[in-house]
Amino acid sequence: MSALLEVRDLTVRLRVGGSDREVITGTTLEIAEGEAMGLVGESGSGKSMTAKAIARLLPAGAGVEGSVHFAGTDVLALSGADLRRHRAKVAVVFQDPRAHINPVRRIEDFMTESLRTLEDVPRAQARTRAADALEEVGIDDPARRLRQFPHELSGGMLQRVMIATALLSRPLLLLADECTTALDVTTQAEVMAILDDLRRDRGLSMLFITHDLELAGAVCDRTSVMYAGQVVETSAADRLHADPLHPYSAALVQARPDVTSTAERLVAIPGRPVSAFEAPSGCRFAPRCPHALDSCRSTEQVLTGLDAGRVRCERAATLRGRLLDPTESPTESEETADA
């Protein structure tokens, strides 16, 4: 598998007020051609910023270190027409279609703008392609929809328009940034199924950003988990549920409600999520981690390979297989066992 996208040690700082705030620290991930990678984490963990860095959509004045390579080009070095070409090859499906589609332009304008401006496709031909794309995402009477304005369509319909539009320009990579979060549950499932189908048909690579571990597991080949601006684990998506490597991933898996039984009380991770700039030194998850030792708090953790995955935890090998065991209560006994 050759990597289409390779992100190495990506660190992003944003200017907030007068000071620089770190939002991502040393993110590393790669996506192969045709692969779907899930990116999971709580709000503020740096998922969206990672996507923005890949599409070069960070606000002006953002400090970026590390490297992003896409289809053989150094993305961070691009400018001008080359940068625009790169953006055209990376399609973004945003979270809130109503805000992300210009409200005063017709659906046809929105859908065909790229084709007509960048590829000089004649109007009639662009319209036919847009209508076909709408049909593909399950919107009937596309001719009428093309003439309508965004406010005349429902949220689910608009997100399908957004997906259809993203695919129209034949991108190499799809960045789906919480693209179903703003929709209600049934619409969510529909939109997700359409997105998954179309992506597989085209063999398109995707970075799927979500805070829904389950959803990521269903549509992705591999999943990366982010915490406080760092990738803490990358594993095969189906394995993450059964055999998480990082205590944070395990806590996320445990925190999701079980659909087969009625839980007395949902398991929550103690403490609150932190952002990269306020993270403690050493392991960033240590203050909330039931397995943390003193050495965790004092040493910076590095992303290391373990089995087929990667994990940012020095105790991962020791804790392997015990993270999900409810009888395993992390107490002093564990510490002595380790020592």
Binding site: R84, R87, A88, A91, V92, H100, I101, S114, L118
Partner: peptide, 19 residues
């Protein structure tokens, strides 16, 4: 946000501003 969408699609800046 919709301006960000236009930028993300690789449209030239002048056309983003105008359209």
């Amino acid at each position: 946000e919709h301006v960000q969408t236009a930028v993300s699609r690789g449209l030239p800046w002048s056309s983003v501003v105008r359209r």
